[in-house]
Design a protein around this nucleic acid. Structure first.
Lengths: 200, 200
DNA sequence: CATGTGGCTGACTGTTGCGTCAGTCATGAC
DNA sequence: GTCATGACTGACGCAACAGTCAGCCACATG
């Protein structure tokens, strides 16, 4: 155990906690697990986090912020709406039994009972929808997309991906990632009046 | 405590367990909770179920079977494909912070780590898709719907509902049930070449 | 009525896992 | 050097909870 500043240690613990949560699930993560994974005494965990609940909630938020940072990078880039759309779809769609997706599915379930997690989960979900809405609006304004209700379209696209991602993440092998991507492209192309091939 | 046949008691315990699970979540349900809710000693729970895991898994399956029974009743009825479709959509879409939906969301999360629950959850999810596919095929054959890929359409419709239902169930107030229903009707109408109003 | 079967319970036990606390030790300030 | 601060830990307390067990008692059967 090398000694570190509180800030560094906190960050390292949160990072480790994310890994442990992704592997064991929010409900089955024990403080001792996180401590062990971080190579640290269990007491240290309580030195930095008052309760287990706080640790989990902060770790969850930490992971969410990382995802959102990647999203913002795309939205704030100078790419065309079509390119941004493609990048967002790529970020959002699950890759393998994605660490992120297992965490969000877990998060939804916990959020049913833990208000603090519900807040984080809601913020994350809404942010994706806003980002997508914005890109669609820009695309419509620039003539790249045709869509009467960008907000609604964004919701439907997000919901479709969520639903398909759950199936891929939870029920391995019922559909392939390729199938998921194809169906998403098809629906998006219909919503925005573009050809599916343009989204590849 | 009135004495009952094992069969009756088992059924009553499963029923009670479903209620408790819906309220407390799969992960937070204790055997003592179920016993108390059923007005029975904790030891009796273990008399009928070897382990807590088995109790929860069986309760989960029990709830799934009830849902599937309702679904089968619709599918096997003599209604027209359009009527069946409307009834399926009505069954599937969440009503309030629906007991069923909180359970399925919880189930997805648990299924990530508990193979036994994964099986039940998969069976349930696939059954809905099959039913919807069947109805769409019938509708296409009879000329009521226009759809080139009934299977794909069923998957997309189901995924959309799942995704929207999660938002309604988990993040109360971000969208209304009315909004959800409107969007589902819109997407379904596009998939099947009917007017949204016909689905009301 | 006697007797066996099986539903049922109270009172346990062992374990797990959160949280505490008294105290150690590294580091930077002076 | 010495002192103060704050990161860090081992060892423990304690409550919650899964699961056990010895035995009770209602009821069907003969």
């Amino acid at each position: 155990m090398t000694r570190r500043s509180a800030e560094l240690r906190l960050d390292a613990l949160l990072r480790t906690a994310c890994d442990v949560i992704a592997e064991r699930g929010l409900g089955n993560t024990r403080t001792a697990d996180v401590a062990q994974a971080a190579g640290v005494s269990q007491a240290l965990v309580f030195y930095h986090f008052a309760t287990k609940e706080r640790l989990l909630a902060q770790a969850f938020a930490y992971a969410a912020e990382q995802d959102l940072a990647r999203l913002d990078a795309v939205v704030n880039s100078s790419a065309s709406p079509l390119d941004k759309l493609k990048k967002i779809l790529k970020l959002y769609a699950p890759t393998g039994r994605s660490k992120s997706w297992t965490m969000w599915i877990d998060g939804w379930s916990e959020a049913l009972r833990v208000p603090e997690l519900e807040k984080v989960s809601r913020r994350l979900d809404l942010r994706w929808k806003e980002a997508l809405t914005e890109v669609i609006r820009d695309g419509v304004a620039g003539g790249a997309f045709k869509c009467e209700d960008p907000g609604g379209a964004a919701w439907r696209i997000n919901a479709l991906i969520d639903g398909l991602a759950v199936q891929v993440a939870v029920h391995e092998r019922v559909i392939s990632r390729r199938q998921l991507a194809d169906w998403v492209r098809l629906s998006v192309s219909r919503e925005l009046g573009v050809e599916p091939e343009q989204l590849a």
